[in-house]
Nucleic acid binder design. Structure first.
Lengths: 169, 169
DNA sequence: GCTGAAAATTACCTGGA
DNA sequence: TCCAGGTAATTTTCAGC
């Protein structure tokens, strides 16, 4: 997979990471390129798959989702059909906002958003524990989500790639 | 904090969650409201804080960030000044894309994105372990990020709120 | 990749329910 | 207070270079 992005593409992606609704014109002013070219580049980045999605981050608390957890899940039998059926299962559970297949002391790490403690308890008992084949559920309640919130750092990407390409020669 | 969103606001937020770059006109067609009113509502939702940010989700792998981990951190002394200095610390570390203060067997859960295993190792040794006061670091390598990807479910929010409001009377 | 015109979208203002 | 319509301003798209 060739890396064929230039400095302008990377700057463009940086701005889009910060604000997905920025106009092509505003970007054009910041990276010194015509609005036209900015639009074309954005479309190209979308088509080639560099941009996956534009999402809106909502204030969960104000929307009555006051509880967030990371819940570690361990399956009883870790064969591939069980792994796959669990992955398929989580797709249809709205409370699960992210699902990560991990190594180590858990098989999966789920990010879960619920209204409150009672709602989470109901979810555990009536939804998650209904899935056979779970041996362990361990909840990390999120007390505070903070710091970071970093988008991925693209500023040093170009030089890094240059080094990688050199190494390949 | 009064909950003064109506069905239209919730539908609007749902569409914005899926696609932050959707135009007011496209939303207007979907929720049967004039483009004009849609714009006004979006602005109001931004001002009142229901909308936190519009972000672009990039393809990390294509941008040479092939490794993701969740790394559990345990501090030696859990007093408030140590907690705060750790939170302050993570703000300036670009590899840390999210930081969650949690209860249980870790104090913090960090989501980390790195180029590859070597890069992650360098990060652990040269950056994270440089922070005094860490007693335990446990890495969950993300083998696969899948399923879910759910935005928060707003479809049943209205009825839920009605119930809550009833309960308060 | 740029320019310039046409098309589409958004912002603003006013009236009406 | 909230919504619709009309107009102005901005932004995006498309053609030609």
């Amino acid at each position: 997979m060739p890396f064929n992005l230039d400095e302008l593409d990377l700057k463009l992606l940086s701005h889009l990471q910060e604000n997905a609704r920025i106009s092509a014109k505003d970007i054009s002013r910041k990276i010194h390129l015509s609005p036209n070219s900015v639009s074309i580049r954005i479309k190209r980045l979308e088509e080639r798959g560099y941009i996956k999605q534009y999402v809106t981050v909502l204030n969960n608390t104000m929307l009555n989702r006051k509880l967030m957890t990371f819940t570690g899940v361990r399956l009883i039998h870790n064969n591939s059909s069980n792994l796959e059926s669990f992955m398929e299962y989580v797709k249809y559970v709205p409370e699960i906002t992210s699902c990560y297949h991990v190594n180590g002391m858990f098989d999966f790490l789920l990010q879960i958003v619920a209204t409150d403690m009672q709602d989470y308890r109901d979810f555990l008992i009536n939804t998650l524990a209904k899935f056979d084949n779970i041996s362990e559920l361990r909840t990390f309640f999120v007390l505070n989500e903070m710091g970071a919130g970093h988008a991925i750092d693209l500023t040093h990407l170009r030089s890094k790639f240059k080094r990688d390409q050199k190494r390949m020669n």
